[in-house]
């Protein structure tokens, strides 16, 4: 790692080239009114000017995140994610819950009795494919998308280390994961509370916890699922550094998710299951057990961490040696 790539504790760029950084900062302070307009220029595809805009201290991540949440594509995906629990709730409200004898998972029969369960049901559906796909779109696009339209060269032309750029891109993807999962949880909560009665939650083990603790456990679920999605984002980011075609990285991530789920469903390959990322996403149901299945969920978090570290470092190694021709 070259000194230029080191990040000082307060997350400013180490001043290896003080004169340049100071200059840029000075320029920025003068042109801070320009900041928003320049970022918008980049979001529309041509990013020649924005190179100056984001070097403003602490603002790099912020500008990335605001870019992400201004893209119509990402907003549309969030909209779909938010809509699923609403549709699920409305359908259950209109047609009534399934009978237990229908063979439907018991969690659906419980929603009509307690709206809070909609959160768990919606997340257990979305975590299979829709959440991973939207995470793949954001993370897979992060490097390859910029390389594809030629803005990556400009991003790297300012004294921002590649490591820092990659970290910001990953942090941006993680923020998106958190926002997406939280949005699903909030939309389910709202729909559930509006359409169904709410009250103390019956755990899977048959015990009952007060509603406040139920909400707390929903918070834990959000964090767990976010961690799982963040691990997928690391894979997607690594793939994104390998190509200049964003859709390639996105599609590969989605295919990997599906392959992992197919492998996880084959009984003869049961031994493989603990090593697959996708088989741990659903273990958030551990918070609904009594006692909370901390052992299983802890293992899940370790698996997520392992995937994040491995693929994060692959992304780093690849990106630092990547020849960016624009």
């Amino acid at each position: 790692m070259s000194p230029a790539e080191k990040i000082s504790p307060n997350h400013t760029i180490t001043a290896t080239r003080p004169s340049v950084t100071d200059q840029v900062d000075a320029v920025e302070n003068d042109t801070s009114s320009l900041d928003t307009s320049t970022t918008e220029v980049r979001s529309s595809g041509s990013g020649a000017v924005n190179a100056v805009g984001f070097t403003k201290r602490h603002n790099f991540l912020f500008s990335e995140v605001s870019l992400t949440f201004r893209r119509p594509r990402n907003l549309a995906m969030l909209g779909v994610l938010v809509l699923v629990p609403v549709l699920l709730g409305v359908a259950l409200r209109t047609f009534g819950g399934p009978e237990a004898s229908d063979g439907a998972p018991g969690i659906f029969t419980q929603i009509t009795g307690n709206g809070l369960f909609l959160t768990f049901a919606a997340l257990s559906i979305l975590v299979q494919l829709l959440l991973p796909v939207s995470v793949a779109v954001v993370a897979g696009d992060s490097i390859a998308g910029e390389a594809g339209i030629g803005t990556l060269r400009y991003l790297l032309s300012v004294p921002v280390g590649r490591t820092r750029l990659l970290l910001v891109k990953y942090a941006n993807a993680v923020v998106f994961c958190l926002v997406a999962v939280t949005a699903v949880a909030l939309s389910s909560l709202l729909t559930g509370l509006l359409l169904f009665p709410a009250g103390p939650i019956t755990l899977l083990s048959g015990g009952t916890i007060p509603m406040a603790e139920g909400l707390l456990r929903i918070g834990l679920v959000v964090l767990y699922v976010t961690a799982g999605m963040a691990a997928l984002a690391a894979i997607s980011l690594a793939l994104s550094t390998l190509t200049e075609v964003a859709i390639g990285a996105i599609a590969t991530t989605v295919v990997l998710v599906i392959v992992a789920q197919v492998l996880g469903a084959v009984p003869q390959l049961a031994g493989l299951r603990p090593y697959l990322l996708s088989s741990w996403w659903n273990d958030f149901d551990g918070v609904l057990r009594d006692p909370v299945a901390t052992e299983v969920m802890g293992q899940g978090l370790l698996v997520f961490a392992a995937y994040t570290v491995i693929f994060g470092s692959i992304a780093w190694a690849r990106f630092n040696g990547k020849d960016i021709s624009g």
Partner: peptide, 26 residues
């Protein structure tokens, strides 16, 4: 306790109290 995905089957024996709980069918 037999944990399943989003479900659990429990058998609880406490003295003369014996309960079988199936979350799947509530």
């Amino acid at each position: 306790a037999l944990p399943g995905r989003m479900s659990e089957t429990d058998l609880i024996v406490n003295g003369d109290q014996v309960w079988l709980w199936q979350s799947e069918t509530n």
